[in-house]
Design a protein around this nucleic acid. Structure first.
Length: 585
RNA sequence: GGGCACGUAGCUCAGUUCGGACAGAGCGUUCGGCUUCUAACCGAAAUGUCGGGGGUUCGAAUCCCCUCGUGCCCGCCA
């Protein structure tokens, strides 16, 4: 709706500028402040003042007069206000918004016809998911959802690093150490079980007797070599560890929820020989050279100082080499590829891009979304190997437990009479607790560093998921109360209060927000929208009673339709973020 | 040392792409509101050298240069 409105405004302004003999390159279309009664405005008069030899307000007046919106469906009027030309919505704008927002798929944009692979998380399967890693799946899953809302065919991919040194160390440690020498696992889950071997192994390599460490290193090197050569027996040894740990991690990620369509293993690109084909092609490149037995690329032309080593002096490949084959696979299978990466990966990503360019790929099809690290208070970083950090399972358990306390403490003074069972309470606690954690992460700009704080992550008031979810529950409450007594009617003409109009205008913006968030790869724009929207709904809730006895029947029916449209908008906006919308709280 | 990010109210953050209407929220503080569709809510008040300095512009939180502070990266690791 908003998008159609914008199209009409753009066409009208462009035509008017053309008529008046002004350039049409800059239309100056922007969203006005909240207290201005317009959906869009143009500030172009500022720029034309010099050429026109008249002050901006005068140019704005001239432009407003020249704008012809008689054929427009959604733009009712162009009116100058100071240096701005404001575009006001027609009755049809509100009427169609009310109708369209009733649909289950409200906020979904037209199909782009494009397939997009969103690779996220891709954490090495070395142990339980900790909070430091959690930004990636939450951000990645929300991004995938937003891109789906924007009309793309999205595949969620977890790239499994099963061929590197870390997995070789893990496999060696798992086969070498005796469970009796390990501490009790922190949780009865396979990832918590096996990470003990990994930690023990790393400790041994750092502090063990030189001779024994040397022998261990030889065994680790043999595993790496076996993988690189595609040796089936080695692959099976490593796979046992990888799949077991990954299974445990998947359970945790699923709670967020972050689920994947594909788990693509790194060893796949060794077994099908594509990595070695990449090596051969790179050796032919004018940027390739051999130094001290290692093959590398000179990336000066891409303003990257450091060379890109793609073949070790012992002729084995590196993670980055295999990642090249991986990305060529993506280019074959999908139209676009987006990767969610920690900011520590930026140099690697730039080098990868340059190498893909050398291999003749169109790297415009590949984009990255970088996020800053989550640190512990005191500046300590979270590490699986060292066992520092807060486990994601612990955070989610605590969040759900606090949410359950909150739900139960409110049961006594509930006005709404919907008899929540224990099962309901548990479900709501799950939705609210996990939603709060997820919202806390997804609402912030990814480039800003986060210091983890229990109270901040578990704050259920103010700008949080529960605040937005509560607005949704309120809407459901009204709809439930009205069921059978009042039939909603799609009649926006009787919705004339400021709060009603503001809510409709806010509903109409939803598709635009999806469009912008997808375009910029910024799910947090949707999060910002949800809390502004909840504000608008709460204002309506306060100002406009729906079911009160003294409300006119027509108004009651129309307000009920408006409540349903708001409910649909809240539910879908939360869904685009991967947050559940409880019907009662 | 070089590269990339970040710095907005006491705290947590929107707004910065693409310069434009008085710089906005929440928490906290002070005051007020539940016999009225759910108070995880709402209303009112107070709170700012938009890190600092310079520049461009009719106009800068937003663009450019310098500077300070913080984080990340600079492996034949992943």
């Amino acid at each position: 709706m908003f998008i159609a409105f914008r199209r009409e405004v753009e066409a009208a302004v462009e035509a008017a500028l053309d008529d008046l003999g002004y350039p049409t390159g800059d239309l100056g279309i922007e969203e006005p402040p909240a207290d201005v009664l317009a959906v869009l405005a143009s500030s172009v008069a500022y720029r034309l003042a010099g050429e026109a030899g008249a002050p901006p307000p005068q140019v704005a007046g001239e432009l407003a007069d020249a704008v012809d919106v008689t054929d427009a469906k959604y733009v009712a009027e162009a009116r100058s206000q100071g240096p701005y030309v404001n575009f006001r919505p027609s009755d049809a704008y509100f009427a169609d918004t009310l109708v369209e927002a009733q649909a289950d798929d409200w906020g979904h944009l037209a199909d782009t016809g494009e397939s997009v692979v969103v690779e996220h998380t891709s954490a090495n399967p070395t142990g339980p998911v900790h909070v430091g890693r959690a930004r990636n799946p939450i951000l990645g899953d929300a991004l995938a959802r937003v891109l789906e809302y924007a009309g793309n065919d999205v595949t969620r991919e977890y790239y499994v690093n099963d061929a590197g040194r870390q997995m070789a160390v893990f496999t060696w440690a798992y086969e070498t150490f005796d469970e009796a020498d390990l501490p009790e696992p922190e949780r009865e889950k396979p990832d918590y079980d096996l990470v003990r071997y990994y930690r023990k192994g790393n400790e041994f390599l750092e502090e063990g007797p030189d001779e024994e460490v040397e022998a261990a290193e030889a065994e680790i090197a043999a595993i790496i070599e076996g993988l690189d050569e595609g040796d089936e027996a080695t692959y099976e040894r490593v796979e046992e560890v990888v799949d077991t740990v990954l299974g445990g991690m998947q359970d945790t990620l699923g709670r967020l929820p972050a689920e994947f369509d594909e788990f693509v293993k790194e060893t796949r690109f060794l077994r099908d020989d594509s990595t070695h084909e990449v090596v051969d092609r790179l050796k032919e490149s004018e940027h390739a050279y051999e130094e001290e037995g290692a093959w590398q690329l000179d990336l000066d032309d891409w303003d990257i100082e450091q060379s890109f080593v793609f073949l070790r002096s012992d002729d084995t490949t590196l993670y980055t080499t295999r990642d090249l084959a991986h990305h060529e696979w993506k280019f074959d299978e999908f139209d676009r590829a987006v990767t969610v990466l920690g900011e520590d990966q930026e140099l690697h990503a730039n080098k990868l891009n340059a190498a893909l360019d050398i291999l003749g790929n169109d790297t415009d099809r590949l984009e990255e979304l970088f996020y800053a690290w989550v640190n512990l208070p005191g500046g300590e970083s979270m590490s699986t190997r060292e066992g520092t950090g807060v486990d994601m399972d612990d955070l989610l358990d605590e969040a759900v437990s606090r949410a359950e306390d909150a739900v139960r403490s409110r049961l006594g003074d509930r006005v709404r009479d919907d008899d929540l069972t224990d099962e309901d309470v548990e479900r709501i606690a799950e939705q609210v607790g996990i939603g709060a954690v997820r919202y806390d992460v997804v609402a912030k700009q990814p480039t800003k560093a986060i210091t983890f704080d229990w109270d901040d992550a578990l704050d259920f008031e103010g700008q949080s998921a529960p605040f937005v979810q509560y607005a949704h529950a309120r809407a459901c409450g009204i709809l439930g109360e009205a069921a059978g007594d009042v039939e909603p009617r799609l009649d926006a003409d009787v919705l004339t209060d400021d709060a009603e109009r503001a809510l409709l205008a806010s509903i109409a913006r939803f598709p635009l927000v999806v469009e912008a968030a997808a375009e910029d790869l910024e799910p947090h724009q949707v999060a910002t929208y949800t809390r502004e929207f909840a504000d608008d709904f709460n204002a309506f809730y306060r100002e406009c009673p729906v079911l009160a006895d003294d409300v006119d029947e027509d108004v009651q029916a129309a307000r009920l339709a408006l409540v349903d449209a708001a409910r649909q908008t809240l539910a879908n906006a939360l869904d685009a973020l991967g947050i559940d919308a409880p019907e009662s709280m």
